[in-house]
Design a protein around this nucleic acid. Structure first.
Lengths: 132, 132
DNA sequence: CTTGCCCTTGACGTCAACGTCACCTTTTAG
DNA sequence: CTAAAAGGTGACGTTGACGTCAAGGGCAAG
């Protein structure tokens, strides 16, 4: 497979794939002329990389974790890293849950604009300006 | 309260507070000499802003949502925005859960490095180097 | 008064994950 | 063979939420 195929199949740009390689996340063979050639497994790997990126892991960390996927081994440092990142993700999920709850409270207030829900409505509202 | 107090109590930098004001997220009175003065409620508001930031909402969006908190009202557009962002957060949580599961699989492999879990271990492992 | 800390505005720096452009070479279609 | 499509390597641009530095003003304590 060439880079365009991998890009299409994994849903990321060719630029991103070259960036991943630059960061040591993705390996490629080369043709005699210098064009990148990928194995089928590359698509799956790119998707894993994307998962980690969308979880907020920086490329440096991903670069430390991926060899562990390949070899199935894990040094104590990598193991600690795994635990750290797992904890970070758990915290992020809690933060997201909190923000979601805040939005839910706002949605509820928007649905039932009563004085009980909204202190601002207990006082007569002064003149409001819509911005622009 | 002055900006340093709010910064200390809310755990964000004074620079961040000025940035919030610049983005229309946070209001302040001014002394005759031009120094910012905040109400007690500012601390709570800053924490709410932080929650939204950590949930990945951009300042532009937060700026659209906060007036709704103040007035307790919500235009149809703001209501749609609330729903959109809630959905976005839900998606993010699912993405985080997927990444966490991926990490969990890696952690499990690290705990039980058996051929069943790890194809790489079916072959004799070549000499390993601990980095640094 | 002056020392020292806090505050002001303005402007530039940062960092990460790419987007985009320029310019050139390789591969493919007809 | 020729033109188009795809790929290669730099190198600079983008975006957002601030950090940081410069150059000065405000203010209570001693």
């Amino acid at each position: 497979m060439r880079i365009g195929d991998v890009a299409h199949r994994s849903g990321v740009s060719a630029r991103a794939l070259r960036y991943y390689e630059e960061q040591g996340l993705l390996h490629s063979e080369r043709t005699a002329a210098g064009q990148r050639v990928y194995s089928e497994a590359a698509v799956e790997r790119v998707q894993l990389i994307q998962q980690f990126f969308s979880a907020g892991l920086p490329s440096r960390t991903i670069a430390q974790l991926l060899p562990c996927v390949d070899t199935g081994t894990s040094s104590p440092e990598v193991f600690a890293l795994l635990a750290d990142e797992r904890a970070r993700i758990t915290e992020s999920m809690a933060a997201l849950a909190d923000a979601r709850d805040a939005l839910d409270r706002m949605i509820e207030i928007a649905h039932f604009p009563t004085p009980e829900h909204c202190p601002a409505l207990r006082e007569p509202v002064a003149e409001m300006h819509l911005q622009r």
